[in-house]
Each structure stands twice: as C-alpha cells, then as structure tokens.
Amino acid sequence: MSTFEPKIVAFLCNWCSYAGADLAGVSRRPYPPSLRIVRVPCSSRVTPAMILSALKAGADGVLVSGCHPGDCHYLTGNLFARRRFFMLRKLLEFVGLEPERIAFAWISASEGDFFAEVVKEFTDKLRQIGPNLKFRKVLRREPFEFPYL
C-alpha cells in the first residue's frame, strides 16, 4: 500500500483529554503525528457542524474526546454530549457515510498511555479505510450545470 498518512482533527476537552495528551507527551509516549488538536472547553462544545466541516475541509478522521462520565469539569457536560454524538452517529450511519471516520473516546488526564494507544489505533484504522474522498470538498474549475447527472 502507498504511504498514506491520515490527517485527524481532534477536539479535546480542556480538562481531561487535552491534559491526557499532554501527559502522553511529557511521558515520552510515541504516537503517530497524524493529529491536529483543537482544544475545546468541554466535549459538549463540539457541534455536528464542527465535525462535518472538519471532514469537508479535508480531514480523514475526527476524534472527539472528553472526560469520563462523572468527571466532567462542568458536572454533566459530557453526558449531554454523549446523547448528541449517539444521534449523530445514527444519522451518519443511516445516510451511509462512513461513520468510522468519527471516533469518540473518554480519556482522563491520567491516561497518557491510553491516549497514545487510541491515536495509534485510530490512525491505523484510517490507513485501512483510506483517504477521505466522499466528504472532502474539491475545488472545481467547471461550472455546476448538470445537477442530475
């Protein structure tokens, strides 16, 4: 296979997962350089439009990660988020659009090792699926005239 290096946009919650990523770095835990991290205040700050427009902009995968249930800095933010992501996944599955490209994880600030593991596995999985072609927006020089073809 070619040397396809996926690009992943990761939305990490400020209080747990971002600190977890930090710990992975501090403890010299290697993980693939595929990640582009966006720090968000809470996993429930992440909206479907954010996830989908990351894919539209050319990301091969999106990782959303927050605190474990019960650990949320805002008490219940991640529990609200969980419902939303559940419904989003169902909707994407329904329209047949590679829901595997979107991964969710609960990673606490102490799970540096696990963070590296998640990123590694997700990257491997995306390598198998291949580059994002369905969702990516391409610039076309041609006008758009024949919508029914």
Binding site: F85, F104, A105
Partner: peptide, 10 residues
C-alpha cells in the same frame, strides 16, 4: 444509562 458502547474507554 444512555447508550455509550460507541465510545472508546480504557
């Protein structure tokens, strides 16, 4: 008890 089997945890 919301379904959460799609979320990866350690």
């Amino acid at each position: 008890k919301d379904p959460d089997d799609f979320i990866v945890t350690a």
